[in-house]
Simulated assay, not measured.
Amino acid sequence: MCGRYATTADPATLAVELDALDETDHSAGVSADFNVAPTTEVLTVSLRRDRDDPQSAPRKRVRRMRWGLVPPWTKELGKGPVLFNARADSLADKPAFRTSFAYKRTLVPMDGWYEWQTEPLGGRKAAKIPYYLHSGDDTRLFMAGLWSVWRDPNIEDATPVLSCSIVTVDALGHLAQVHDRMPLALPADRWDAWLDPDHRADQALLEPVPDLFARIEIDRVRPLVNSVKNNGRELIEPDVDRAGEQISLL
């Protein structure tokens, strides 16, 4: 599962690094977000042709999308479940995801993601303990995602809403100590095949790379991240007061 994450990716820098077009709106300013939550707009990387030239070669494009995929048949935005995660084992079958899995796949860059464990407090209400999972060398992770286009059926020529969902798989190795699901991080050599809009995704692309996930470190962090009102680098810093404590499931 991945319901909250952190990212310091700058769209302009990301576009340069990936030789992509930056199609984001910079008018509102750009800043890191250490507490990304569903329904907010997040950075994504997709591979698409120019709308005015359908015969052109596909180009990588950095876009912002609403986190929580909105199927095209949705009658009203904000109604129904928020589809912020999509299970890899059912992408080809579930109506909400199967078309996106076939033709609209994306990458979601992040620095790391959060998971929670419930810890009993001796008769008092149990506490939700947050953990931050990130690459040991602090390199950016690119998670497999799906995207969709929705237009309000009640408005003529409605502005399209782009939305996305992050693909999850069974957790590997030590990560299963925190949660039984994890977002599917893709290595660079799978990006082009995953993004290719002209070919259906091969199931092999959904197989996690053990070496990639073996490098993921788990830090217990302070409960600040439990509230979406909090946002800052302090959210991903290890809880030094609990530095000697291990994950409760160990």
Rank of each mutant, 00 (worst) to 15 (best):
D180Q: 15
L91E: 06
L146G: 08
M110R: 03
A127G: 00
T106R: 08
Y103L: 09
G145N: 13
A176E: 12
A92D: 08
W113E: 08
D170I: 05
L133A: 13
S148L: 09
H174E: 10
L146A: 09
F84A: 04
A86R: 07
I129F: 05
S165E: 13
S163K: 13
L91S: 05
R140T: 14
R181H: 05
M143E: 02
G173M: 13
L133Y: 07
V161G: 03
S100A: 15
A158K: 14
D170Y: 11
R124Q: 01
L83D: 05
L184N: 02
H134G: 05
N154T: 10
K94R: 05
W113S: 08
G80L: 01
L172H: 06
R98I: 07
A158N: 15
Q117D: 06
G145C: 08
V108M: 00
A158Y: 15
P95I: 02
H179N: 02
G112R: 13
D111R: 03
M182S: 11
G136D: 11
L91G: 06
R140A: 07
S148P: 07
T139D: 10
Y114H: 13
D170T: 14
P81V: 06
A171S: 14
F142K: 03
S148V: 11
D170A: 14
P109M: 01
V167I: 08
W150D: 12
E119A: 12
V178R: 00
L172P: 07
L175Y: 05
D89H: 09
D137C: 10
P81F: 04
H179E: 02
G122V: 01
G112Q: 11
G112Y: 08
I155K: 10
R124K: 02
R151C: 06
I129S: 09
R105I: 09
L172E: 05
F142L: 05
P120T: 02
Y103G: 15
R151L: 09
H134S: 11
D138M: 06
E115R: 03
K125A: 02
L141H: 00
A176L: 06
V167T: 04
K125I: 01
L184M: 02
P160E: 06
L162S: 13
T139W: 11
D137I: 10
F101Y: 10
D152A: 12
H179C: 02
D89W: 07
D138W: 04
Y114N: 15
P95Y: 03
I166C: 03
T168N: 04
T99I: 10
G145S: 14
L141E: 01
P160L: 12
V149A: 14
I129D: 07
P183C: 04
T168K: 04
V169G: 05
M182V: 09
T159I: 12
P109C: 00
S165M: 13
A171P: 10
L175I: 03
I166W: 02
P160F: 13
L141S: 01
L162W: 15
K128A: 00
M143T: 00
A126W: 03
S90T: 15
H179M: 02
T106N: 12
G173R: 06
S135C: 07
V169M: 04
M143Y: 00
P160Y: 14
W147I: 11
D137T: 13
V82G: 02
G112F: 11
A176C: 04
D157N: 14
V149Y: 15
T139M: 07
